[in-house]
Design a protein around this nucleic acid. Sequence first.
DNA 1: TAGTGGTCTAGACCACATA
DNA 2: ATGTGGTCTAGACCACTAC
Lengths: 265, 265
Amino acid sequence: MAGFSTRKTEDFVKRYWADESDLPKHEKLSRAFTESIMDGFWTAGARLPTEAELVRATPCSLGTVQRALRNLAYAGVIQRRRGSGSVVSDLSRPIDEPWHMRFLNAEGQAGSYLPVATRVLNRDVTADHGPWSADLGQTTEKVVRIERVMVIDDQFDVYNLFYALADRFPELVDTPMAELNGINLKDMMARGQHLAVQRGRQLMRFEAPPKNISLKCRWPDGERASVLNVVGYSMDGEAMYYQDYFIPPTDLTLDLGTPQRTYAQ
Amino acid sequence: MAGFSTRKTEDFVKRYWADESDLPKHEKLSRAFTESIMDGFWTAGARLPTEAELVRATPCSLGTVQRALRNLAYAGVIQRRRGSGSVVSDLSRPIDEPWHMRFLNAEGQAGSYLPVATRVLNRDVTADHGPWSADLGQTTEKVVRIERVMVIDDQFDVYNLFYALADRFPELVDTPMAELNGINLKDMMARGQHLAVQRGRQLMRFEAPPKNISLKCRWPDGERASVLNVVGYSMDGEAMYYQDYFIPPTDLTLDLGTPQRTYAQ
DNA sequence: TAGTGGTCTAGACCACATA
DNA sequence: ATGTGGTCTAGACCACTAC
């Protein structure tokens, strides 16, 4: 096909190419892409302009365009295939499974995880401060707090508290609670926020569960909880959410992830 | 100065440049460097040949040499400074603190961790198999098992079991046990293994501690342990060690690390 | 067969460090 | 003033995909 819609490319360059900044060109170009993807200018699965098209439409040479796209691919933002093209990855899976509560099955080899069902118990919007405030950058803003239960493989319950800035994620506040159940929460944060979460800091602590937890989910009487605290960051470095997972004693193994890749190919 | 010692560069190319392999040249070159660093051909702090020198001594052009070195710098293997040169990073800190047992203090901001003192209890070499076997790639080989206690800020004890292939780390077997105490363990694995550990998989499970644990360290009676399992990989992708940390109930918070960088600059 | 990304080159110019 | 890495270019050739 005689190539890619030239209009879209020119739109892209006009809107996202920062002429004044004194960053290197390859950096300017990859930032233009991440920014435009976060804006929703390109959506997950969308096909990006070809290298040649970008050489034509930007003040970059082929080598520079390739370096920008290679970095984006390395970061997982796009996927490139020789012969077909570059497409936007689906990174709009900010908070939901199987991101955080990944339990191995009894034989337990990584890669396949136990099913998780999520149920929303409660939601409120408050200006209260707490441990989440520093991470979310909350000053006078309000946060939305969502109380959830994750049922792990029908075996036991994990109690979850989720915090995010209410202004930044109005969908979390406005959506009727019934619709917050299940896997929809992910699409919700993704809507205004097309590029999400480079999974961030993880902390583990051990403490008594909240009072009355046994009224909210199945919880072994009086047992201490292991609390996994997770802060998720978006690509621009801002914290998107703060979560506490209260895990009861269990025989299952929790996968905390494989950080760090080796190096760029 | 009229440059860099040409002899050393030619030695390097002769010994580490893989002519037959059909990898891309930039990949060949960066592998040659990681391999030679692991061998001890270049040691931490050593100054590498300049770009121009490598262009001269290898069948690579400047762009290719730069790509290889850029990837190594991104991976943290070397450090480059415009005007001075490229030097080998000190990555010989495989297993010791503050790698894994990083507890936050009570106010608990990340970055500063509670002091950890390590004491070796026991060591044996065995051909037994167990959960570690698959990860370490143990078939008929023997593993060295080291039993340790980590005293966290004089407050409580973490019980640690450490496994590695005995053949691969003879220092762990041969060194007198008294010398295994404290921070020396790190230097030990680093000696033959100049480039170490890209920290690997982390799992958390919850189980009864080993029998008789209270004879070996301070352990609250009958309490369940939180077990952090860590497998560390070296740069060539092979597992270096398998460790279980048995953590008693505590009020302190454990930092599980900040995975994932954003993307290459 | 045409389009696409992947590798590689030879050379330019620049910013920074060191002497 | 020289050496060094950082950026960028214009173009070549190749491998793979889709039509």
